[in-house]
Each structure stands twice: as structure tokens, then as C-alpha cells.
């Protein structure tokens, strides 16, 4: 269900928090839907249950999920994921790769910014014509 890299420097509980939020964003889990219990998730992922507990506590603190005593843990029906946060990270990564490549070709910051300006003109041109 979720991918966790135990050898990463990012704490495992943080990865789970991010994973859950991302899954909600992508529509893999929907508001109001039931999540696995701490015990079930620990078993599925072969992870320390205290770690899962910590992740769930954090998600609850952020009002992403809610625990109903005796019933289980559910995604909040009124959680509105902020699209921007995740898309922004993805886009930043893309830019980073492009800048590194350009740098290795000998482009300086000014040159790269010029390229971006050119691209905008190109794309805006396309938009206007549509």
C-alpha cells in the first residue's frame, strides 16, 4: 500500500504521514474511508507499531484522519488537501534536473534564465493562438 524506505534519513513515521496525504491527494483513499488499524498496518508494512502509532497521531493532529473509539480510524471527511504543496515539490525536482544538465553544458545562471524567458514566450505564443 505505502512505500517506505527504512534506510532513508527521513523518519519512517514522516514517510507514512506524507504517503497518506499523497494517497488522499491522488484519490487512492477517499474522505470518510476507513484506514487500516495501527496493528494491521504494522503487519502489512513489517514496521514497528510505535512508528505507525506516531504517524497516525501526527495525521490526527493535522486533522487529516480521525479515530472513532471502538470503530476505527477514518480519513476526515472535510480534509482538503493542498494541491500546490505536492505539485510544487514535483515541479521543483524537474527544474533542478534541468538546471544541473544545463550547468554541465556550461550554461551560467543568466543563460538558464534567458532560456526560461524564451520558453515562456514560446508557450504564451501557443496559448494566445489557441
Amino acid at each position: 500500500m505505502f512505500n517506505v524506505d527504512a534506510s532513508s534519513s527521513t523518519p519512517i513515521y514522516q514517510q507514512i504521514v506524507d504517503n497518506v496525504k499523497e494517497s488522499i491527494l491522488k484519490g487512492l483513499i477517499e474522505p470518510g474511508e476507513k484506514l487500516p488499524s495501527v496493528r494491521e498496518l504494522a503487519k502489512i508494512l513489517t514496521l514497528n507499531p510505535n512508528t505507525i502509532q506516531k504517524a497516525y497521531q501526527e495525521l490526527e493532529r493535522q486533522k487529516v484522519i480521525v479515530t472513532l473509539r471502538g470503530k476505527g480510524t477514518y480519513v476526515s471527511s472535510d480534509y482538503k488537501p493542498r494541491r500546490d504543496e505536492y505539485k510544487l515539490m514535483e515541479v521543483k525536482e524537474l527544474f533542478k534536473k534541468g538546471i544541473i544538465e544545463a550547468h554541465y553544458m556550461g550554461f551560467k545562471e543568466k543563460d538558464i534564465l534567458n532560456i526560461i524567458e524564451e520558453l515562456f514566450k514560446e508557450l504564451e505564443g501557443v496559448d494566445e493562438n489557441d
Binding site: A6, V38, R39, A42, N48
Partner: peptide
């Protein structure tokens, strides 16, 4: 893991396999 989740058992485990420990130990 099931044992700890269900019964709150305390576990002390020695191992060389740090990859495993990394996942399950706190």
C-alpha cells in the same frame, strides 16, 4: 510485530541484519 501490537510485549533482539532492525526497532 504482531506480538508487540497486540500484547504490548517488550522485545530485545540482537542481530547483524541492520536492514531488518531499522524497520522494526525503535
Amino acid at each position: 510485530i504482531d506480538e508487540v501490537s497486540t500484547n504490548e510485549t517488550t522485545v530485545l533482539i540482537s542481530s547483524h541484519h541492520l536492514g531488518e532492525l531499522e524497520r522494526i526497532c525503535d
